[in-house]
Structures are given as structure tokens and as C-alpha cells.
């Protein structure tokens, strides 16, 4: 066996050092560059301002429904540039009755296929008979201040918008599911390309024309409007194969509508609004001392709060 000094001559040693040095420097530079680029590249400024007229002629009533107030505040928030808004959600667990209307509303709004859910309601039983209680925990995406799902994405397909909403680019996502693993809340699910009605298909054509899993009902082929675009899952189109998650119904916000889960909450347990508006209902709710976040020890700083 040779001594270390005999392994390479001077020229080889310099070349080896150069290659290793250049490689290490390039790797370090790439990491530093991308760490610095984590901020969103979404459009900001005046072009993101929305002049929503729906609530303009409706005067504030002293005892108006929370939904009306939130919708009014939503229109006011949309009249500001995107970087001036900060969407948050507050869920009053004392008022949640576990009806799952939010879950179903979300499934219908976003045309979610089997196995994809943005807002399940977790039900836990506490105590022993006869002193038993059911707790309900609606779990949307937490839209964390410090999201653990964003930096693991290998293709920059997910990021945090200036208004705090964590989004996914369905046209770029490769479906590696790294982000699903990184989310401690299980808020991301993968679209495996399934249909609710595919096994119920009747009279679907045989041969090449017949889809692999039978023919889903026509309503399952309707496009979803997530992120303000039309997504058609037919023929393995996006978002089939992608990671999917709650996006606070951005497409509805753009049109002055509250997220579907807020609109469908029969117990008025879910509140939504701009935390930069200090007069808003959500700020009123979130500044109480009985507000908690889920799994705070991970330091994700969720923007979905629970009143307990």
C-alpha cells in the first residue's frame, strides 16, 4: 500500500483539489441562492387590488350576521394590494358541532376526488361512559408563517404568497410527496387520479375507449376552479398526480366570496379575514386568551387558530 504522499503527483493533486473545491463552492452557492429566494415571486402592488362592489350598498347593521361582516371585511381587504393583506382563519371549537358541512362544501367547491380532502373534521372521544364527550377539530391547511412543506419541494412548486396563503403550482409539481411528509398536520393529500363513480360505471364502451377504472359520472369530469384557473383531470391532466391542499379558496376570495368552509359552517364556528385589519372580526377573535394553534412546538407558526 502506498503512502498518502505517493498517491498523486503535484499536478494531479492540484486538479483534484480544484475539482473538489469548485464542486463544493458550486453546491454552497446554489443552496445559498435558493435560501435567499424563498420569498414569493407573485405579483404585488396595484394590479392585485380588487374593487369588489357586491357589499358596497349594504350598510353596516348593529347586529348583522358574522358572515355579512366578514364578507364586508373581505371586500375591504381585497381593495388593498396583496402584500397588505394577511389572511387568517379562526375556528371556535366550542361552536363546532361536527356536522362536516365544511368538509363536504370544500369537496364540492374544489371537485375533490376520492382520497383528497382539504378540511376533514377530526372527531375524538373524551372520557368514559357515562361521562363521555365528543370533540371536533376541523383541520384545514394551517398556512403556516414558517411552513415546513415549502423548503422540501425540489421543484419550487409550492410557496407562500405575499398574503400568507401557501399555494401549489399544479403545472410544476412532480408528485414526489415530499411535502406531504413534511406537513405535520397531514394537510396535503395526493391526487391518485381516482373517481368516486368509476366502479359504478354502466354501459361504458369496451376496448381502447374504455377508461382504466371504468367511466366516471359526467359530473366528476367537471373542471375545478382552484387558483382561478380551470383544471380538468381528464386524461391525467393536472392536478392528477399532484399534491393538493386547502388554498383558502383563493378563487372565491378574488370574487368577494368567503372560503366555502366558512360559508357552509352552520354553527358559525369558522371565521376568516385579514389580520392586518385591526378592526376585523378575526382579529377580535384571535386576540383572546383562549386561542391556540396546533402542534406549536414545531415552530411552523400556523395561521389557523382555534378558540378552545
Amino acid at each position: 500500500m502506498k503512502k498518502v504522499s505517493e498517491i498523486m503527483d503535484r499536478r494531479e493533486f492540484i486538479r483534484a483539489g480544484g475539482l473538489v473545491g469548485v464542486g463544493a463552492a458550486a453546491a454552497g452557492a446554489a443552496i445559498l441562492k435558493d435560501r435567499g429566494e424563498l420569498a414569493s415571486k407573485d405579483p404585488t402592488g396595484e394590479k392585485t387590488v380588487r374593487n369588489l362592489t357586491a357589499m358596497k350598498n349594504l350598510k353596516t347593521q348593529p347586529s348583522e350576521d358574522d358572515h355579512i361582516r366578514m364578507q364586508r371585511e373581505l371586500a375591504a381587504a381585497m381593495s388593498k394590494p396583496v402584500e397588505k393583506r394577511r389572511w387568517i382563519m379562526v375556528i371556535d371549537l366550542r361552536k363546532c358541532v361536527g356536522c362536516q358541512a365544511c368538509t363536504i362544501g370544500c369537496v364540492a367547491e374544489n371537485k375533490l376526488p376520492p382520497g383528497v380532502v382539504y378540511r376533514p373534521v377530526v372527531q375524538t372521544e373524551i372520557g368514559e361512559f357515562p361521562n363521555v364527550r365528543l370533540n371536533f377539530l376541523p383541520r384545514p391547511c394551517m398556512h403556516c408563517e414558517n411552513p415546513s412543506c415549502v423548503p422540501v419541494c425540489p421543484v419550487k412548486a409550492t410557496w407562500k404568497r405575499p398574503d400568507g396563503v401557501v399555494v401549489i403550482d399544479y403545472d410544476r409539481c412532480i408528485g414526489c410527496r415530499y411535502c406531504l411528509n413534511a406537513c405535520p398536520y397531514g394537510a396535503r393529500t395526493s391526487d391518485f387520479g381516482r373517481y368516486y363513480t368509476s366502479n359504478e360505471a354502466q354501459g361504458a364502451p369496451e376496448g381502447k375507449e374504455r377508461p382504466i377504472y371504468g367511466s366516471p359520472a359526467p359530473w366528476e369530469g367537471l373542471p375545478s376552479n382552484e387558483y382561478g384557473k380551470s383544471w380538468n383531470r381528464k386524461d391525467h391532466g393536472s392536478p392528477v398526480g399532484n399534491a393538493r391542499k386547502c388554498h383558502f379558496c383563493l378563487h372565491r376570495l378574488e370574487n368577494g366570496l368567503l372560503p366555502m368552509c366558512v360559508s357552509t359552517c352552520i354553527g358559525r364556528a369558522t371565521y376568516f379575514g385579514d389580520s392586518n385589519d385591526t378592526e376585523s372580526l378575526v382579529v377580535e377573535k384571535v386576540t383572546r386568551n383562549n386561542v391556540q394553534t396546533l402542534l406549536p412546538h414545531w415552530d411552523n407558526k400556523p395561521k389557523c387558530y382555534y378558540i378552545v
Binding site: I31, G175, V240
Partner: peptide
């Protein structure tokens, strides 16, 4: 294993080096 096998090359074209997956791919 990818959900979108057709986008495999995105990992090299749109790499994010904050992700160990992209770093490893390179």
C-alpha cells in the same frame, strides 16, 4: 414513484436547492 412521471426533468430544470431531493438529484 412520482405522481407525474412526465415531469421528471423538472427536478433538474426547476431545482430548488433548499430541498435535499433536488440537491441529491444533481
Amino acid at each position: 414513484d412520482l405522481g407525474r412521471m412526465d415531469r421528471l426533468m423538472n427536478i433538474l430544470i426547476h431545482s430548488s436547492f433548499t430541498s435535499m431531493m433536488a440537491f441529491n438529484a444533481w
